[in-house]
Simulated scan of single mutants.
Amino acid sequence: MSSFDDVGSAIENHTEEDENYFISMTDMMVGILFIFVIMLMVFALNFRQQTDVSLEQIRLLQKAKEQAEIVADRLESLRNKIGLELQQLDKSNQVRADLLQEIQRRLEDQGVFVQIDPANGVLRLTDKAVRFPSGIPTLSDEATENVRKIAAALYEVLPRYTACRKADPTCDNTGTPSVETVFIEGHTDMSGRDDDNWTLSTSRAVNTYRTMAQAQPSLLQLQNHARRQLISVSGYSSTRPLIDEPTRAAYDTNRRIDLRFVMEIGDRQNLTAVVGLTREMEAELRQLRSAIDKANGK
């Protein structure tokens, strides 16, 4: 794999992990509730079986009750925080879908036909827009002209979805969802040697990037909140085919360029607060379990 691919894939993997963070947090919350209910049921069952309830047991029961109320409050707070972050994620996805649709409309008006995948944030340059002959990384004259049109459409739309400009010392901190990265992704078909295909796919992405940069240098001025350039490249060899068949038609389709738009989601401070809350809940649950064990003579 090339260095472009290493960097691009690492950044993308990190972002995909961020996008799945809130769903994982929801799953964790459900699991904690499940464990909590089981613990209370076991405690209640054991308590009913006790025929000699001592003052110490009553004290421990009261302590467990208080601990349970604390955990319930923590869970309510966590659920509210996760709910707000999920709303922000939904908003980011809708903003990205609007962005893709606007770019697609502008390109169709110029006779350049692309496909969009709003769920995954992909603008796909089909063989009607950019076609690569087998084993060739360079753009044809027709493909070059289309990439220039794509670059123009990007610069007409993308600045409204971008947080920072290189020449501007301030960034947009209004909380409006913005783009974190636009990956220019190169792909090959399944023919040829795998090692060659990694280089080939990355070269296709790099050549597309260079053509865009030459056509619209201002695209390189767009930055995310971390002050990193928006436009980047990655290569995937034949690992992400659109049609997983060993046919010529499939090969023609799979040799392509995708533009993947990744949104900036979640405020780091909010995420840190959620993680801290889960740790506090873990401590409360440990204390609750300890109180139950003592009441049961363990």
Rank of each mutant, 00 (worst) to 15 (best):
A152S: 14
F113L: 08
I136D: 11
P133E: 00
I116K: 02
Y155R: 01
F113G: 08
N120F: 09
V114N: 05
F132H: 08
A143C: 00
E145R: 03
L158Q: 13
G111A: 07
Q115T: 14
A151F: 01
K166I: 02
A129I: 04
R160E: 14
A119F: 07
D117P: 14
G121Q: 04
V112Y: 00
T170S: 12
K149G: 06
D117Q: 10
V114F: 04
T181H: 14
E102L: 06
A152L: 14
K149D: 06
E108W: 07
T144R: 14
T144S: 15
R160N: 14
L125E: 02
A167G: 03
D98F: 00
T176G: 07
A143L: 02
R105Y: 08
P118N: 05
I103Q: 10
D127C: 00
G135L: 02
T174H: 10
P169H: 01
S140I: 00
R124A: 11
F113K: 15
D117L: 13
V114M: 01
D117C: 09
I136T: 05
A163F: 15
V122Y: 07
R131K: 07
V147G: 14
T144A: 10
V147R: 00
D98V: 07
V179N: 04
R131H: 09
P159Q: 12
E145D: 07
E102F: 00
V130W: 01
D98C: 03
T170E: 14
E102W: 02
L100F: 01
L100D: 05
R165W: 02
N120G: 15
V112D: 00
V147C: 08
G175F: 09
L100Q: 06
T138Y: 01
F183M: 13
Q115S: 14
G121I: 04
L158R: 09
K128L: 08
S134M: 12
Y161L: 05
N173V: 15
T181L: 06
D109N: 12
I150V: 11
E156L: 12
E145K: 02
F113T: 15
E102S: 00
E180A: 12
Q115D: 15
G135N: 05
F113V: 13
G111Q: 11
I150R: 05
V130E: 10
P169G: 01
F183W: 04
K149T: 03
N120S: 15
D168H: 10
D141G: 05
E156S: 10
R160M: 13
Q104K: 13
A163R: 13
L123Q: 13
Y155P: 01
L125V: 03
L125W: 01
N120H: 15
P137D: 03
T174L: 06
F132E: 10
L125F: 04
A163P: 11
L100I: 06
P177I: 11
D141M: 04
R106P: 04
L99Q: 10
V157C: 02
E108N: 11
N146H: 10
V147S: 09
N173T: 15
A163L: 05
F132A: 09
G175Y: 08
K128V: 00
E156P: 02
E180P: 11
T170N: 13
A152E: 09
A167R: 13
T176E: 15
D127W: 04
E142I: 02
A119E: 12
C171G: 06
E156T: 01
R131V: 06
R105W: 13
E142H: 08
G121K: 07
S140N: 00
